[in-house]
Design a protein around this nucleic acid. Structure first.
Length: 188
DNA sequence: AGGCTGATTTTCT
DNA sequence: GAAAATCAGCCTG
């Protein structure tokens, strides 16, 4: 999809974009798959990097909708976000591997498809996402995003690995997918 | 199956 | 100096 169409798609609350991205196709230089897990981070959200205003690290979060925000996590991993309205973004937490599986297996050092891209750090390692993509416009530079009309049933749950605003059910997943980073609690 | 810990580096207090 | 939107490996039971 063209960059301007992606910008249009992302120009709304992260809370709207996050579930809408379930089922979308994500690829870097032809290697990727289908998004099965996301999390929303809003501008007024204590768990968001943007909560205390713009800094050197989170500058990309204040760029136009459709910008990629990539940051280093725990000093080791990379995490990939899609910027929505300024100061808000969607963390892509897992994809179902589809294209370039051989290359992803090589980068990850495991042939376990279920865990190949299940988690923000694993996903970035499999797709070779790093700081070079931070601040770039999705739809350019080999970064491909193709939203789909119906990604199937979407389930929601609590976000993972945060210590603030832990009660917001802003984690979204494709119902029944085996490729999510952690199971979603079943609701009655 | 589930819990703990080390790795590693940037950011903010 | 502590915490961080994590992960893999090793421990126990």
């Amino acid at each position: 999809m063209q960059a301007d169409q992606i910008a249009w798609f992302c120009d709304r609350a992260a809370l709207d974009v996050a579930p809408a991205l379930i089922g979308a196709e994500l690829a870097v230089s032809g290697i990727g798959g289908v998004i099965v897990e996301t999390e929303a981070y809003e501008a007024d959200d204590p768990a968001s990097h943007s909560f205390r205003g713009r800094t050197a690290r989170n500058a990309a979060m204040f760029g136009p909708p459709g910008t990629a925000y990539v940051y280093r996590s725990y000093g080791i991993h990379w995490c990939f976000n899609i910027v929505c309205r300024p100061g808000s973004a969607v963390l892509v937490r897992a994809i179902e591997p589809r294209s370039g599986i051989e290359e992803m297996v090589r980068r990850r050092g495991t042939a376990d498809l279920r865990r190949l891209c299940a988690g923000p750090g694993r996903l970035c390692q499999a797709l070779a996402i790093d700081a070079a993509l931070n601040g770039t416009e999705i739809g350019t530079g080999g970064l491909v995003l193709v939203p789909c009309a119906s990604g199937g049933p979407v389930v929601a749950g609590l976000r993972v690995g945060i210590s603030k605003a832990i009660d917001r059910p802003w984690r979204f997943g494709r119902a029944g997918s085996r490729f999510v980073s952690r199971p979603f609690i079943k609701t009655a």
